[in-house]
Design a binder for these strands. Structure first.
Lengths: 191, 191, 191, 191
DNA sequence: TACTAACCGAGACGGTACGTCGCGTCTTCAC
DNA sequence: GTGAAGACGCGACGTACCGTCTCGGTTAGTA
């Protein structure tokens, strides 16, 4: 009748400790100076326990991303009724929060995404590409701010892509720069 | 009496061998499975010779980028008089050439850029952000295809950024997709 | 009222399975490539069941030795009435049976004995040092083959010791070699 | 003309440090609680440097044995003109020096020999089986203490074998015991 | 009949050590 | 003064077993 496994169950405490240690070390050291041994030590867990549940460093990051442990809550896209202002402040906030000078969290995420499929996809989702960003744009259409036939997906990718490109070439984006992006990309779609 | 250095000068043969080996291994193994020891062996050169002239793996890649050893010639932006067609085919070509299934050259470049300043900046330039792309857009203004006040830099970043975002999330871009990007981003600037 | 334990008793099936698995793995892999986890798996038993009843790998081996599961029956010392012939053929048989080229059972036993007290003592007994060998020598005295004051214990140790030394230095002992040992050691005690 | 390799030469300092650390740890911890990492740390050397020159723990021990770093000098077989006394005191000394109660150096050597060919052979040699012991016996023949046809090799193996057997079964050998061995084994060969 | 302790399998856990890889520095010899 | 060769100290990798532990299920005895 029952198909439950027998034996001890996965330790939730260990799982949490690992994810927290990962988030902490990722934020402080960056993707490629974060080591599995470091995570194990920081989490007070044996290396084997990590490898038992996560096949690689990338999977660990992806999991943190999935559980919203890497990106602060401030990064949620606001909805004040003014798309342009909302997108502008969102972009500026992302940069302010994630892209410190030397070791940038955003750049670390990009590095992780570049070498791990799962992270790539989770990052895509986490930046709102799969819901919140297009949702926001759609609500702008409903509000009559954008034309009904505006290419939402492309607009979203253009905005987030610009962001990532800037992070890669070590250029910051301030409020004014963000506004320029938004204007350039949204221009054609104004109602 | 003389202030000339004495002894042999830098071996051009070694320099070429290293850059070629780097390009070869970068293309086959990707950025982070490419090792300095591997390059030395492949180039038939000692490790010391590499470290004497390049401070890091990133610098090696950046140098290859500078000497146009990593990106094939096909990637130059065409100028047929039709901006939209030119940009579309350029984007599609980049994807066709750089983004093979498993080990993508584009993704490797992104990884390298993410962890090395120099590569980040060289990549930015190599993708045309510093001249050919904006040049092409400017010539489109001259030809009356785009409005005189079109935000060239932002348009360029949006296009290239979209590309990179797609590479990171493992989605391909075909001719049609490229066209959608171009339309979305250029829309506002049509003359 | 009662001081009987309650609950099920020790599973004889598990006990047998463990000892058989131990003997099998000890013979095939040798002492130090035999693992507790391997024994548990081979026996279809949980690790805990092993550790519940045996404190260590050594104890497991010692127990196998005690139950005569490691050494084949052929190794019993014959008694044909001719001590020299009996001892000679016994030694030769031990070597023929226990000391195959690469992974020698005899050498594995020595390794086990070297790092575990109990095994050391069980091995000592199993090789006849505590009864059958001295018994045989004593019966040779009774038969008038040896002098009444022959130092039985020393003779036994000399014979078995020679054997072990040969096993350690990877030299085989054939019938002729065995005969030489017996002659050398028994020589002084001929009646 | 020259067939010399070029490049740096093996560091003698590292070699010595490793052998000394090995001898030290072998003596204090015993064969199987001596770890490669421990040796590396104790020697102030990287693990890789050990593995570059020695394939295994056994090889390390064998090398120490070869360089006479494990067995103290006191163990050389004396030659006072009285074979029986010499052998007796030699055996007693070996036991006094090598076979402390808990962790016996002799037993560790046996364990090492049991699982490593090279150690087995080096140990055989180090205990004098290949020269000093048979030399001593031969000189006893010359001195007329033993019969000319005494089986030297067998006598040697019987003595050393008895020793090893005693070490394995955790029985000590004092002066009197040693004397009994010598008498038993040499008895037949008295001139 | 129900309770309850001791058994059993499975296997997760914190550890220690393994043997390997690549780093960036260094030393040696040849040109 | 370069360059090839490659040894060195170092740090991390991913794996193998250790011995302990926690599970759910099963099996005797009481009570």
């Amino acid at each position: 009748m029952s198909d439950h496994r027998q034996g001890p169950v996965r330790s939730e405490a260990a799982r949490i400790a690992v994810l927290e240690a990962t988030a902490r070390l990722f934020a402080t050291r960056g993707y490629d100076h974060m080591t599995m041994e470091g995570v194990a030590a920081e989490a007070g867990v044996s290396k084997q326990t990590i490898y038992r549940w996560w096949p690689s460093k990338g999977a660990l990051i992806a999991d943190c991303l999935l559980e919203r442990r890497l990106l602060p809550d401030q990064l949620t896209l606001p909805d004040t009724g003014d798309v342009r202002a909302d997108l502008t402040s969102w972009i500026a906030t992302i940069f302010r929060v994630l892209d410190r000078a030397g070791e940038s969290l955003l750049r670390s995420l990009i590095a992780a995404a570049a070498e791990n499929v799962e992270v790539g996809q989770r990052l895509h989702a986490s930046l709102g590409m799969e819901s919140s960003l297009t949702d926001r744009l759609r609500s702008a259409i409903d509000a009559g701010e954008l034309r009904a036939d505006a290419p939402l997906a492309e607009i979203g990718e253009a905005l987030v892509g610009s962001l990532i490109l800037r992070a890669l070439s070590r250029q910051t984006v301030d409020e004014a720069g963000a506004a320029r992006f938004v204007t350039a990309v949204l221009g054609a779609s104004r109602a």
